[in-house]
Design a protein around this nucleic acid. Sequence first.
RNA 1: GGGUAGGUGGCGGAGUGGUCAAACGCACUAGACUGUAAAUCUAGCGGCUUAAUUGCCUACGGGGGUUCAAAUCCCUCCCUGCCCA
Length: 393
Amino acid sequence: MDNEEKIERLLARGTAEVIEKKHLEERIKKGDKLRIKNGADPTAPDLHLGHAVILRKLREFQDLGHQVVFIIGDFTARVGDPSGKSATRPMLSEEEIKKNAKTYFEQAGKIIDIEKTEIHYNSEWFLKEGWAEVLEIAGKFTVQRVLERDDFERRIKAGVEITMKEVLYPLMQAYDSVKIRADVEIGGTDQKFNMLAGRTLQRKMGMAEQDVIMMPILTGLDGERKMSKSLGNYIGVTDAPNDMFGKVMSIPDKIIMEWAELAADYSGEELVEIGKRLERGENPRNIKIEMAERITAMYHGKEEATSAKENFIKLFQKKEIPDDIPEIAAEKGDALGDILIENKIVASKSEFRRLVKAGAVDADGEPIVDIHFAIERPTVVKVGKRRFVKVKI
RNA sequence: GGGUAGGUGGCGGAGUGGUCAAACGCACUAGACUGUAAAUCUAGCGGCUUAAUUGCCUACGGGGGUUCAAAUCCCUCCCUGCCCA
């Protein structure tokens, strides 16, 4: 790949929109070393494949010698969400933030080079500055402009509250760009407004405007909504190989192409090929198996991915028992229900009772019918389709 | 500050004294079918308990009260939307 191609790939592959593409392209060609900004809240430090879409783009920049600047939005997290509904977000302590940030970078380190990354906490500036600065920044934006944001508009129509903090949020994010003198900001398309606010603020504060790269939002496992932890439709970058593989297999057919591009990182030609195969009527399962192996390998290596594939085939296509299932210890005569609850395989006795009634609990391949089923000898227990456990005595 | 409508399970949303662990839909879990896809059908979906939906406990914004009995009535506090200023 020559340089020209690399740049093209950098700005085109997998991106949703680039503002302003020409300008950015020129700067890269000129050989400027750019400061590439990306930020995250240290609230839920579990990274999933949706985050990975953005991180991989950062990595590309990093590989071309640009400086990635990462901002931990600890200030926002510390302030907490003031909308005092039933679940006010608890203020995070400094330790929690530090801990979350650490976890975050451990996970992000699977994708970007942390050594070469410049890291800032935005409390560095927000904690020092006061109302004077807030007003100065706020004075550069109009209410109309901020309320134009489509999600605000929608919420106003729907009668859902919008707190002042949320209104100020884009300004804070914009100010981050000013503080670290960002040349480029990368984020999801949902960040468009905030990132553009960064441009506005930089300009009004006499600085060159950052360019903005928007990455598509990855659709979650349900095939409908964006991947997010709270919706439970995600694959975490630290998910075990078998889980990761299985989850990829469970995605609906209609998002195969999207995932192939964004999550599996297939090249342009490969994507065309996959499209053709699907058109020809090949069983989408085959493509998913390849893709699942590829994605699993990205986070766990080739070997683990291959064994996850074998495990999957064994388990679901041949309906055999997987090789390495967790073992739990028990005493002869213990009630199976209690054992499963203790080991958190089943949530409660009531749930266990229901599962047994539904014929969902197998002991050595036979569904059990007695909820008082006692363990008499080492037994392989299956709960539902994918919960396996070996009970030892 | 004034007026007005509200706060029910993960979400949406019924219910306005007993038959309410709370209709219905979504989400979710299981079973059948399958490609752990989709669609479909069936069952379940607070907890403990029993041979058994048997018995019990906790729950309808918080607290207090009326009643044999409250999500439903009263008092009080908190919170939110909308309109007006």
